[in-house]
């Protein structure tokens, strides 16, 4: 059954906030087993799109399916297949790392023994075991990202949706996260993540979509989108960036 359905399918997703259009009709098919990068400048609507795709934000129009399950008609079935790491959202950060994992596992209806075993493993692999009784609120930014990823992975989801997993993460943690994601994708899982770091997307992704001003501007396999150029060149051209001429801000140089 999963073979026929894309891992994530979005049709006409749209959202406006207080009169400003955040997302203006996004259509997207994420093939099962792909490593999908959602690129876009700040304010392009990446977070809004992903929130609507996973059931955190009700869209004004459009639908989303996870492996054929409608996210908004049958949220429970869809959410069971999903692992999500939202950005700019707090975790229940007055728990310790282990407590947070146990909470998430039991909340997903997992067996306590399995939760214990997987939590120990994840804490070990992500080098969070040393934190011991430290509350997540006292973690560093990189550690918070890692525990968020652990929470998303714990129940073994089929589709992993990550919002800005590499934001504010030091190179060592970033390499670790990259490594885990690659292994997860190699094992048959689907990863979709948003980012504005070109090199990470270029290195990891099989597919990429460029989102700007609330619509998809380019979409396809990474080779298609690049068309022989660097991803950064394509991105700046699509987004319509401005380059400094050198005359303004002259007071910055002495």
């Amino acid at each position: 059954m999963t073979g026929e359905h894309p891992a994530l399918a979005l049709r006409g997703l749209a959202k406006r906030f207080d009169g400003t259009i955040a997302v203006a009709g996004v259509d997207l098919d994420v093939p099962a087993g792909s490593f999908y990068g959602l690129l876009g400048p700040n304010g392009a609507g990446k977070t809004t799109t992903l929130s609507m795709a996973v059931g955190l934000l009700r869209p004004d129009a459009g639908s989303a399916w996870v492996l054929g399950q409608d996210v908004w008609r049958d949220p429970v079935a869809a959410k069971r297949l999903l692992g999500v790491m939202p950005d700019g959202v707090r975790l229940f950060d007055r728990l310790t790392g282990a407590e947070l994992l146990a909470y998430n596992g039991l909340l997903r209806g997992m067996d306590p023994a399995v939760v214990d075993q997987r939590a120990a493993e994840l804490l070990d692999v992500l080098a969070l075991g040393d934190a011991g009784r430290t509350l997540v609120v006292d973690y560093s930014a990189g550690m918070k990202k890692k525990i968020g990823l652990a929470c998303a992975l714990l129940h073994g989801p089929r589709v992993l949706v990550l919002d800005e997993p590499f934001e504010a993460v030091d190179p060592v943690s970033a390499a670790l996260i990259r490594d885990i994601l690659t292994r997860y994708a190699a094992g048959g899982g689907t990863v979709i993540f948003s980012s504005h770091v070109m090199e990470v997307v270029e290195r990891l992704c099989s597919h990429v979509a460029i989102l700007a001003q609330g619509t998809i501007k380019r979409v396809g396999t990474i080779a298609d989108v690049r068309g022989g150029r660097s991803l950064e060149q394509v991105f700046v051209e699509v987004v319509g960036g401005r380059t400094a001429t050198g005359d303004e801000l002259s007071w910055l140089s002495r």
Binding site: T96, A98, E99, A102, G105, L106, D116
Partner: peptide, 8 residues
């Protein structure tokens, strides 16, 4: 002490 669940 104990597993993650016991700690929670």
């Amino acid at each position: 002490t104990g597993g993650a669940v016991a700690q929670l």
